[in-house]
């Protein structure tokens, strides 16, 4: 495996849902890569399509939704062409997912051990239960779950412990990608901080890539290597965490960062409030989907959709401010923050 080529390449991915108002594009022509062993934070407000994107990576979009265009290459293979058998193999062995609510994402009538043994045996029919148990014990030790917990049922575990079991289920088959969809959101802050540390450790130790989907910008700053920002189904900005937080380019990202509360109590400044509402995706705004709310909008923004442009090395932005077009009239950048 060539480590310089990305683990996952998402190319012009679109997901549409059939609704009474017509087709709604929840994810619209999104392209980005997930590198080997990185933690990529995927942020955006509710309904921006970040969870849909996460599900699409496992082909878990259920009707009336469907992946309507694009490619998802995992180690160079397009997962959209997989048949059922190959897909089942891919889910679990190559990519896995941790969900928001640890209370409900484990089967209440199975013990921790039964969950883990099952995960191994549905993928490796030849593995005998004692071998599976051996592997599980090693894994749990590394995850900091006590052996005695193997016989526990989900309701006997705390939220943080259940989430660790979910992580264990993702790791037990050596999956290369773990998609954590708001995995820490329902935990209290202390448990959340511990789990975030643990996710970083797991990344270091197992070399997995983690796609951390969250609306919590602070969390991303703490754990991720790179950040992808989504707005209304579009990817608006992508780059190294330090870059994005120091010098955000897209007006949406700037607004998002300006609206995060800080602990600097001396500063009596009010939090930034982004004007307007997120658009209805059944009838998205023309051109750039952010233009009706954008403080820096130009006339071209409502007419043409900007492409993804590398404004600085490794820092991609989807905005007319940073690229030229014959119809673009110059305007000086003046934004909030």
């Amino acid at each position: 495996m060539n480590d310089t080529s990305p683990l996952v390449q998402i190319r012009d991915l679109s997901v549409t849902y059939k609704t009474r108002l017509g087709d709604t594009s929840a994810v619209d022509k999104v392209s980005f890569d997930i590198r080997h062993g990185e933690i990529l934070g995927l942020v955006g407000e509710s309904g921006c399509g970040k969870s849909t994107l996460g599900k699409a990576l496992l082909r878990m979009i259920m009707p009336p939704g469907r992946i309507s265009a694009g490619q998802i290459l995992f180690n160079g293979e397009d997962i959209l062409t997989f048949d059922d058998k190959r897909l089942r193999d891919y889910r679990g062995r190559q990519a896995s997912m941790i969900f928001q609510d640890p209370m409900t994402s484990l089967n209440p009538v199975q013990t921790v051990e039964q969950h883990l043994v099952e995960a191994i045996q549905v993928h490796e029919a030849q593995t005998q239960t004692p071998d599976a148990t051996g592997r599980i014990k090693t894994l749990l030790e590394r995850l900091g779950i006590m052996q005695s917990r193997l016989a526990s049922y989900p309701h006997q575990l705390s939220g943080g412990m259940r989430q660790r079991v979910m992580i264990g289920l993702g790791l037990v088959l050596n999956a290369g990608l773990i998609i954590a969809d708001e995995a820490t959101t329902s935990l209290d802050v202390i448990v959340e901080a511990k789990l975030v540390d643990q996710l970083r450790e797991i990344r270091d130790e197992f070399g997995v890539s983690i796609l951390a989907i969250t609306h919590n910008i602070a969390l991303v700053a703490e754990m991720a290597d790179r950040v992808a920002v989504m707005y209304a189904g579009n990817l608006v900005e992508l780059g190294e965490v330090s870059r994005i937080f120091d010098r955000p380019l897209h007006p949406y990202t700037q607004g998002l960062l300006a609206s995060v509360p800080t602990t600097e109590i001396n500063e009596r400044k009010e939090l930034y409030k982004m004007p307007g509402e997120p658009p209805n995706l059944a009838r998205p705004p023309s051109g750039c989907r952010f233009h009706p709310r954008c403080p820096a909008a130009m006339s071209i923004c409502s007419r043409h959709r900007p492409g993804l442009n590398e404004a600085a090395p490794g820092h991609w932005v989807h905005c007319w401010l940073y690229q030229d077009h014959p119809e673009k009239e110059e305007k000086t950048l003046k934004v909030a923050a």
């Binding site: 889910r91 969900f99 089967n107």
Partner: peptide, 14 residues
């Protein structure tokens, strides 16, 4: 429709 079924599906359980 419950979460643990979705989670199981995501793990490749038939």
């Amino acid at each position: 429709q419950s979460d643990f079924i979705t989670a199981g599906r995501a793990r490749g359980i038939p």
